[in-house]
């Protein structure tokens, strides 16, 4: 039997199919977000099932997560990203104790108990300044792709200081820095440091390692180092960081299928 996890994010819709017994990943995929998330999710699940040599009927349980989770008609349950990330990371990195998840529009810090259950979490879902959005604004202004930020930041010798809390005004700062001759690599370093610092502020003083960095922003070159520097602690990037939330949702679907209690609303 197969279970599906659907993560309806702000930029991408992710699906992971797992074997309900072994929890092995059978297939996974990503599509850009659109207007009809329900249809997108349905199409992606079907496509992945076919690719894996399965039929849609083989998918026996679906859990949806992410900001658009309640729009997914095929979902048997909706569970928040906090819980799904915890389950997904726990599956990949069983010893994880802290999760830093930076997505396109929000960022979270989740503390896990020794048994992997969520002990506490902090979210920034109001301010774009500590999220991938800020990096997108930066990349647009510099006329580069997000994937190129890493090679740029590697050349930085003196990161610029970005002072504004608000990414809208911070964009003005970037323009100002460029106009004053600040090197693009220093601006990139400054912005990445600013995003990482905002996340570190959520963390407070007490963090338990291992710290796992996940979410789409973990894929952006340079961000791992920036978060490491801001926290002054080693940070591990989760395997396939974009997919860990959907993976957690799929695992939770499998748990539900087995009859285990899960924290679903």
């Amino acid at each position: 039997m197969i279970c599906a996890g659907v993560d309806v994010g702000s930029r991408m819709l992710k699906v992971v199919l797992v074997d309900a017994e072994s929890l092995a990943v059978v297939a996974s995929g990503v599509v850009d977000e659109g207007i009809d998330q329900d249809a997108l999710a349905t199409q992606l699940v079907e496509r992945l099932a076919v690719q894996a040599g399965l039929r849609r009927d083989d998918v026996h349980a679906v859990v949806a997560t992410g900001y658009g989770r309640k729009l997914i008609g095929m979902a048997d349950a909706t569970i928040t990203e906090v819980t799904c990330q915890a389950w997904g990371i726990r599956h990949r990195v069983p010893e994880a104790r802290t999760i830093i998840d930076i997505g396109g529009q929000d960022s979270k810090l989740v503390r896990l108990k020794p048994d992997g259950a969520v002990a506490d979490f902090v979210m920034n879902d109001r301010c774009a300044a500590g999220t991938g959005r800020f990096l997108e604004v930066l990349a647009t202004r510099l006329g580069v792709k997000l994937t190129c930020l890493g090679s740029l930041v590697a050349q930085s010798r003196k990161p610029a200081t970005i002072s504004n809390m608000c990414v809208v005004f911070a964009e003005t700062e970037i323009i100002g820095l460029l106009a004053s001759g600040t090197l693009p690599e220093d601006i990139v370093a400054g912005v990445q440091a600013s995003v990482a610092t905002r996340v570190a502020a959520m963390a407070g003083r007490h963090l338990t390692e291992p710290i796992i960095f996940t979410g789409g922003v973990a894929l952006v070159p340079g961000m791992e180092a920036a978060v490491h520097s801001a926290l002054d602690r080693p940070v591990l990037v989760a395997p396939q960081p974009q997919m860990t939330c959907a993976l957690g949702a799929a695992i939770l679907a499998a748990e539900r299928l087995r009859g285990s209690r899960t924290p679903a609303c």
């Binding site: 569970i79 990203e81 259950a117 002990a119 979490f121 879902d125 924290p263 679903a264």
Partner: peptide, 23 residues
Amino acid sequence: DAVGEEDGATSRTVGRLEAFLEM
């Protein structure tokens, strides 16, 4: 953290509440 009665607050609040109760 709230800024009062902005429209986006409800979904944000609900999301946090649900995650908290799940926990």
